[in-house]
Simulated assay, not measured.
Amino acid sequence: MTLPVNPPVRPMLAKSVKGVPAPDSVDGGLVYEPKWDGFRAIVFRDGEDVEIASRSTKPLTRYFPEIVATVRAQLPERCVVDGEIVIDIDGRLDFDALSQRIHPADSRVRMLAEQTPARLVAFDLLALGDESLMAEPFSVRRERLVAALGNAEDPVHVTRVTDDAAEAEQWFEQFEGAGLDGVVAKPLAEPYAPNGRVMLKVKHARTADVVVAGYRLHKTSTASRPLLGSLLLGLYAGDGRLQHVGVAASFSERRRAELVEELAPLVVAEGEPHPWAEWRDESAHAGGRLPGGQSRWSGTKDLSFIPLRPDRVAEVGYEHMEGVGDSARFRHTAQFKRWRPDREPASCTYEQLEEVARYDLGDVLL
């Protein structure tokens, strides 16, 4: 490729803030966009050559052949676009379906591309023709993006924006029902800053009481100094099963050592029953929902865990759930808040979770 902006390029990032900031809270003003929940992607096109790079600059090109085809069909012949690759099912973003694309078999990738095709949501333009736009303010880059992709058709979309904080608040509440993550506020006067946290993001914050039924050791753990890496969390489904819903991590080294000692009396001995005992059976890992199971993300990483009697309840913070009903789980790593000795494990059910009103993704996309 001989573009004015060539890979690798790390995308511009955002830092978390509480509440939608006022549009005049930064010099030059802010505009707001929906925060998409997909794979961040920088798309490079130079004629027939197309490359799609992830947030970490790793190649995504082979996993989304339908996006490659639509880039050749709809994007300017020479351009660099920053955006998000998403998949939606029944009018809602589906991250599980998206993650299934990261598969070594080309035949499976192409089958999924036909069954659950992806969309490209564009929100920035880094280069067009022989011109780099990286040094231009976002206000200019946005105008150029709309002009370049204004006639694009599904599955290419230019994300909507607003300069009205009240409308952004409305998006924050409504669009979660379509699977979106929150709202991003972008400074109009700023140039593109690769890997810089220049933008502001507002995400949903909630808490839940969960059962702690195991833990994984930290990668720096040793036999002489065991350190806890993450707590394995569960919620009881309607049929009485303890469903694995995610992990809580991010402890200090001192706290990791303390937690190993604190949880030692709850460790399940070999042969004792445990709600996730089937993790020992390799054939059970195929479903990808067991705490000891491998995934396309973990590869050969050891995900074995120390099973605990499900007797302790913790309060954790989370942003939103992935999935529906009694199969939902935390979309991101949960944040440990405190132990809840006043709560019975049996009371930690899905019923405590806030139910978000459904919202059709078609009403979000332009």
Rank of each mutant, 00 (worst) to 15 (best):
Q174A: 12
Q174P: 00
T220Y: 01
A135R: 09
S139Q: 10
R206T: 07
E131W: 01
T222Y: 03
H218S: 12
W171E: 01
P137K: 03
L188R: 14
H204M: 07
P117H: 01
S107I: 01
L128K: 03
D154V: 01
E136Y: 11
H204Y: 07
A152L: 00
S224Q: 14
D181R: 07
L149K: 02
G179T: 05
L180P: 07
V183S: 05
L120I: 01
M111V: 11
S139A: 15
E143V: 03
A166F: 02
T159S: 15
A127L: 13
Y215K: 01
P187G: 08
D124C: 10
F138I: 03
L228H: 05
A147Q: 14
G214L: 05
G177R: 05
G150C: 12
L133C: 07
Q100R: 15
D209W: 04
K203R: 15
H218F: 09
T220V: 00
L227K: 13
R110D: 12
L149G: 02
L145A: 06
Y215A: 04
Q174E: 11
I102Q: 10
D209T: 10
K203C: 09
R119N: 05
P104Y: 12
A165E: 11
G129K: 08
A205V: 10
L228I: 09
Q115A: 13
V198Q: 13
E136H: 09
K203I: 15
P137H: 06
R144P: 00
V183G: 02
H218Q: 08
M199K: 13
A178P: 03
L128E: 11
R144T: 04
M134H: 07
E143P: 00
I102A: 11
T222N: 03
P104D: 14
A166M: 06
A122S: 14
S224E: 15
L227A: 13
R110A: 09
Q100D: 15
V109K: 05
H157A: 00
G196P: 08
P117W: 01
V212D: 05
E169Q: 14
A168C: 10
L180T: 14
E190P: 00
D181H: 09
R160E: 11
A185Q: 05
L145Q: 05
H103R: 04
N195T: 06
T116S: 14
D154S: 15
L133D: 10
G129H: 09
A205P: 00
R144K: 13
R206D: 08
A193R: 14
P226S: 11
L120P: 00
L145H: 02
A148Y: 06
R160Y: 02
A213K: 01
L180N: 06
A213V: 10
V156M: 06
A208M: 12
E169P: 04
V158L: 02
E114A: 15
T220N: 12
T207R: 04
